[in-house]
Amino acid sequence: MNLSVPSQNVFHGLGALTNRELKKWYKDPFALFMSIIQPVLWIGLFGKAMNIGGLFPGASAMMQQVFGTTDYFSFMAVGMFSFVVVFTTMFSGMSFVWDRRLGFLNKVLSTPVSRTTIIVSKMCAAVIRATSQALVVLLIALALGLRFGPGFHPINLLGVLAVLFLMAGGLSSLFITIAIRTTRWETHMAVMNLLNLPLIFASNALFPIQAMPGWLQVIARANPVSYATEASRQLLLYPADAHKILTDFIFLGVFALVFITAGIVLSWRYLTR
């Protein structure tokens, strides 16, 4: 028998698989609405209720020193980008567990799509989804009173986009890497719940690191969410400190690179069992 195997590039099927993930989100108005309403509630309730500036009138010098700005709402709204990215990418691992459980994964594994593509499609979908949701949060925060810092230039928004990309890429890879061998979604859910709390609270997303106890500062300084938030604040609120931004980008870049690589390498090893 003479069979010709069509030559295929490594990433064929990537667009289709990514789009499959995204369709579940953008074609479902309810899911879309719910994914945006949560950060809105956080910004609205938490950001406005915790009016720290209003609690201590006349303490603007202290505010400036602790938060880097006198406006806690803006400080917290930028932190909310990280919050959104963490919670959105969390589901990339979850959908992987479901694909395994429902048999879709085995079906895809028997097609000529490469293992790398399967993993990368999950990452792409998570990055696109998380980034666009974070941008929606930015628009809502602007409407609710977010004020850019004095050094802000529209080009900085591209920097924020890059930050979101790196953070979403790294985090989704981390979550997918955890999910790659998991067959039960309950197990995965438990691990996610364990991780998301420290990722958000042991970071500068809601409160500055300097105000934390020493041991927590150590964790927060190793937390990629801190670097992403810090970089976004530098770009949007603070008089952009090039040195700090560079450090943040290097850390985020390494973080994303390590976990994307880990996800891909593990996919070669563990997807064909």
Binding site: P6, G13, A16, L17, D28, L102, N106, T111
Partner: peptide
């Protein structure tokens, strides 16, 4: 090609979209 025991078609997509998804997996 495999037709597994499970129903692997994506519930949220239409029948046509599911078939086209499979087609793109085979380029």
């Amino acid at each position: 090609s495999v037709v597994p025991q499970e129903y692997t078609a994506d519930e949220d997509l239409t029948g046509y979209e599911n078939i086209m998804l499979c087609a793109s997996l085979y380029s």
